[in-house]
């Protein structure tokens, strides 16, 4: 399949597809980070994670519409404010959901899966009723438009670059927070040994709620970033949920580095193969490989060794 292309063409193809893969990677990482915190740290399967992301995207869309309407002069900076809004709204909803549903189900992880699936159906229908079934998109501010030409055949869109930069910042931020901050330390303590953590005075219920809210908040930011590169519809979130779960499981559920590494592998494999094979075949091959590797190594690529 490589024979039909010259060497320079191949280089360009790999560069372009690699870049497309990096954008996919950003979406995966942003979604998977939240999921890795919720699933990896708390063991809760949040099937509504995609809908939390889409909520962030809708909040961003609303903010951008408001800015276009009332504050057109500073439209260029709407994104940063939208991102904060998205985080606050989704984190608040996350905390509410944790309080209303998840905390009753910690002992039954398979049941959280069903309950959150129900939640995702409700949220989808809610979005459809409020925003309509059609996809909505934001108008990008001028400084995110256009692309940066590396040479004749390679062009890199600026919004893609921006999203990637954002991904790096958020990933580093989350990693630092999990390692250094009080909440991060408490979360890890609760994950590793809940009774002991409670015994040394950590309010485990509060930590659970904060962790869940934080995971959802990151999903909201992911949704915010998602508006930069695609349009938002009521069911957009569901498209990514299976992939994202595979990313998290493949990387090793409680390891952030593993999540990033597996998101990178999966997205690059998929987008590179997409060019040479049809999209569906590429996807099938990628998923099959991941499932195959998971069967050989169920604990994922990077796993935390804890004595339970």
């Amino acid at each position: 399949m490589f024979a039909d292309y010259t060497m320079t063409e191949l280089t360009s193809i790999f560069a372009m597809q690699g870049f497309a893969g990096l954008i996919l990677f950003s979406v995966f990482v942003l979604m998977a980070l939240g999921l890795a915190i919720i699933f990896g740290q708390m063991g809760v399967i949040n099937m509504a994670h995609g809908e939390f992301m889409i909520l962030g995207a809708y909040v961003t869309y609303l903010t951008s519409t408001l800015f276009a309407e009332y504050l057109p002069s500073i439209y260029g900076s709407y994104f940063f404010i939208a991102m904060i809004f998205a985080f606050i709204v989704t984190a608040a909803l996350g905390a509410l959901v944790e309080w209303a549903i998840i905390r009753h189900l910690y002992k039954r992880p398979l049941d959280t899966l069903l309950a959150t699936w129900g939640l995702s159906l409700i949220l989808q229908q809610l979005y459809r009723s409020v925003f309509g079934a059609r996809e909505v998109g934001v108008t990008l501010p001028d400084w995110l438009m256009g692309s940066y030409a590396l040479n004749d055949s390679i062009e890199i869109p600026i919004n893609g670059l921006f999203v990637m930069g954002l991904t790096i910042v958020i990933t580093v931020g989350v990693a630092l927070m999990m390692q250094k901050s009080r909440l991060g330390k408490q979360t890890r303590a609760v994950v590793q040994n809940r009774p002991m953590a409670a015994a040394v005075g950590i309010n485990t219920e509060k930590v659970d709620r904060m962790t869940f809210a934080l995971g959802c908040g990151i999903a909201g930011i992911a949704g915010s970033a998602f508006t930069m590169i695609g349009s938002t519809g009521p069911t957009s979130g569901q498209l990514y949920i299976v992939d994202t779960f595979l990313v998290v499981v493949f990387g090793g559920a409680s390891s952030l580095i593993g999540t990033v590494a597996s998101a990178f592998t999966i997205s690059q494999a998929q987008s590179t193969m997409e060019f040479f094979l049809s999209g569906s075949t590429a996807k099938v091959l990628t998923l099959l490989t991941v499932v195959g590797i998971l069967m050989l190594r169920p604990q994922g690529l990077f796993s935390l060794k804890i004595r339970r």
Partner: peptide, 14 residues
């Protein structure tokens, strides 16, 4: 219907 279905999921589980 989707609202009812979602509520059903949550209600049955909880």
């Amino acid at each position: 219907w989707l609202f009812a279905m979602g509520a059903l999921f949550i209600g049955v589980v909880m």
